[in-house]
Amino acid sequence: MLHTINKSPFESNTLETCIRFLQPGDPLLFIEDGVYAVQAGNKFSDLVNSTLQNNPVYALQPDLEARGISSTTEGVKSVDYEGFVELVEEHQVNSWL
């Protein structure tokens, strides 16, 4: 199951909630304001890092660019909309709105 998060972790506990339900191996994709979670060196870096131990983590590149985020937590892969579609080819989707 692909999990998407679109909320800034500074505003909402969606990320923490989602992680509680995440099963090992499930990919996590940050979109929209969700991408603030993966900016390198922020207070969520440790959480993202520990998630990366068991789950692939992605961030939507156009959303990173729109928000001026050029440096992301190591191990986070950026994907464009095509990459988003490829994740959906492989997985059912659970959007954590």
């Binding site: 679109n6 979109i31 929209e32 939507l60 156009p62 909309y81 095509e82 579609v85």
Partner: peptide
């Protein structure tokens, strides 16, 4: 942004 993301996603798909 939801509507924009939905559109971009649809277009890419």
């Amino acid at each position: 942004q939801a509507s924009d993301t939905a559109f971009k996603f649809a277009e890419a798909a």
